[in-house]
Structure formats: structure tokens, C-alpha cells
Design a protein around this nucleic acid. Structure first.
Lengths: 190, 190
DNA sequence: GTCTATAGAAGGATAGAC
DNA sequence: GTCTATCCTTCTATAGAC
């Protein structure tokens, strides 16, 4: 049988290369070189370049969706839910740092799975916005524009993959705490 | 003489295409089709695909650098400087919405100009961090991790291009104000 | 499971007619 | 200034030997 770990190595290496120059600019020869093999040999483990993208993006996107569903269903306050979302991003980004690049930047190159991805993304953003709007309604959150709040938080969280590798010394819990403090409590000393 | 506006049209169209699928995935045939001409004809106005990327990225990067230098040299408080940075991003993003995509996502495909770009980027980030650190020292800003603050603000600001087009109804000043409020004062109702 | 060889499509860019 | 034709390179993927 084909070694699943070999296939996993290829996917992980692909994710790393996609992070460094994007899906379109990475060639199967690049990937083969990084794996110390020839391009043709890759096809003994995977069926296409597209399969690599699909595997990386859909897997992570589904992890986010599952995490968000749990947070939504919980009994937490809305502020606590936002903090849980921060922790979710930190956790998934720590686990799939390289894959996050493809999720953020290369999803538009999905073929068969594009629609599925977009559904997950829309569901995620709708839930996020919903929590913020409930938080404003319950007077936990200042009466600001909820879409700007979501945009601000979500773009910061989506970019964590670029920045967490440089901050290896912070553990996940400390980083989540710091991010929540800054994004939720603000930075001004009042 | 060659029409400069024709060349500008090509650059603008290229920026739009780069935004939608990234530099590497855009072909000269794509660009020609969008311009309603043939690929070969493009070369009467520009010398290469690389020139398009270079023109877009370096021009905007220099605009950011100049804006930051002015802010740094001003007599404002550090919080006021941060607000000026927010306004700078909103303003430049409004003017070069499509080009911002290449600046953020395709800079690594620069050839000759890569080093120059990286210098500008480092200078910009150093200034940004410097303002935050001075703000903490002067007790305008809470004693948080300055790099996390910069990361959080800068990634939000860098992603504005994705989101401003959907918010056409907000004018630049309102948007700057809202973003400053959220990022600086926080969202929690205390 | 990896290789060499190569098919077949698509890419950036040029030559030269109009 | 735009076109057709085409060069040459590089790409993804397959065939078939080992």
C-alpha cells in the first residue's frame, strides 16, 4: 500500500512552498526538488497539483467551521465567544502555519471545491458577525459598526500565520490573551 | 509618441487582474483580452510583465514611505500619529485599491526591485513600531507587547483593499475614524 | 516507488506586415 | 499601434523501464 506518511510529507512540503510564493508560482518540479525526488514520482502519491491545494484548504476550512459551530452553540457571553474565536485561530494557525497561506491567498485557484469553500467561508463570517451584533445588542460591546469590528479582528487573525513563526517564544495561551486584550480592550491608556 | 494614458490603462487593468488571481496566475493573454487587444500589442507599451508588477508595487510602497516619514517628523502625540497612519492607509487604499493586492501578496515576485521594496517595508515597520514604543514609554498606550500591537493594526490596515470596495458608502474620513476608534479604544463597553 | 523520456498545452516575448 | 505567426521555454501529467 502507498505510505500515507509519504503523501502527508508531500502535502506539508507543498503547503510550505505555497506559503513562500503562492500556488500558481510553485511548480511540480519545485515540489519534487524540495522532496528530493523527480516530478514524475510525485504522481505515484498524488493525482494532481490541484489535489494538493484542495486537501490543504478544505481540511483547514472545515476545522474553522467546526470550531465556530461549537463556539456559537456554547453558553458563553458574546465577549467570551470572541475570545474563544481568537483562541481558535491561534490554535489552528499553530497547527497549520503553512497551510494558512493557501487558505488565505490561494482559495480562488480551487476548481471543484471552490463553491464548497465559499459556503464554509460565508457561514464562518456570518457567525462571527452574529456574535458581534448580539454583543452590541446586549451592551457588552460598544455600539460601533459591527462589520468594521469583524473585518478588523478577522484580518488580524487571518494573518497570524505570517507572524506567529517569528514569535515562537510566546505560547499559544499567552498569545491568545495578548491578542484578545489588544483587540477587545483597545490599546489606549485611559 | 506613445500615449501615457494607454500605458496607465494597461497598468490599472493589470492591477485589477493581479488582485483577482495573483501575479503568477495572470497571463499576458488575460491582460490583453481585458484590454480588448492581442498579447503582442501590449509590448508596444510596456517591456515585460515584470515591469507591470514593479511599477505598481514600488509606486505604492514609496507613497507609504513618504507618508510615514511625514508622520514621524510631525509634532503630534503618539496616539495622534497612529491615527494619522490609519488615515494614510485609508487614503492610499482608496486611491490604489487594486494595486494594494500586488503590494501585499505579490512583492515576492519582484526581481530587480525586491531589495528596494524590502528596504522600504522594513523602514515602514520600524517607524510604526517606534511610534508604539514611544507611546508606551510616554504612557499614552497601555504597557502591552508593541510588536503584537503593530501586527494587529498593520494587518488590518493592509487588508483594507479587500474590504473597502464593499463599503463604498462610508467616506474616507468616517472609515478612518471608525477604524481608529475600534483599534485604539477597543470594542468593549466598560 | 522512482526513474528517464516525452507528450501536449500554455506561458512570455519577438519579428515583421500593415 | 495593432495584428498574425511563431519561437522557445516551461508547465502538468503520462508511459513504460527498472
Amino acid at each position: 500500500m502507498k505510505s500515507e506518511t509519504r503523501k502527508n510529507d508531500i502535502i506539508k512540503t507543498a503547503a510550505k512552498l505555497f506559503k513562500s510564493k503562492g500556488y500558481s508560482a510553485v511548480t511540480m518540479r519545485d515540489l519534487a526538488t524540495a522532496m528530493d525526488m523527480k516530478a514524475a514520482s510525485l504522481y505515484n502519491h498524488i493525482s494532481s497539483k490541484q489535489e494538493l491545494l484542495k486537501t490543504i484548504v478544505v481540511f483547514i476550512a472545515e476545522e474553522f467551521t467546526n470550531g465556530m459551530r461549537q463556539i456559537q452553540a456554547s453558553e458563553k457571553s458574546n465577549i467570551a465567544k470572541l475570545k474563544a474565536i481568537v483562541a481558535l485561530h491561534v490554535e489552528i494557525t499553530a497547527k497549520h502555519t503553512n497551510g494558512m497561506a493557501a487558505l488565505n491567498n490561494d482559495w480562488m485557484h480551487l476548481e471543484d471545491q471552490l463553491e464548497h469553500y465559499l459556503q464554509l467561508r460565508t457561514e464562518y463570517e456570518t457567525s462571527f458577525l452574529d456574535i458581534i451584533e448580539h454583543g452590541i445588542a446586549s451592551e457588552e460591546i460598544k455600539p460601533s459598526n459591527p462589520e468594521i469590528i469583524m473585518f478588523s479582528m478577522l484580518t488580524t487573525l487571518r494573518s497570524l500565520y505570517l507572524w506567529m513563526p517569528k514569535k515562537g517564544r510566546l505560547n499559544s495561551q499567552e498569545l491568545s490573551q495578548n491578542l484578545s486584550d489588544i483587540m477587545i480592550d483597545g490599546i489606549i491608556k485611559s
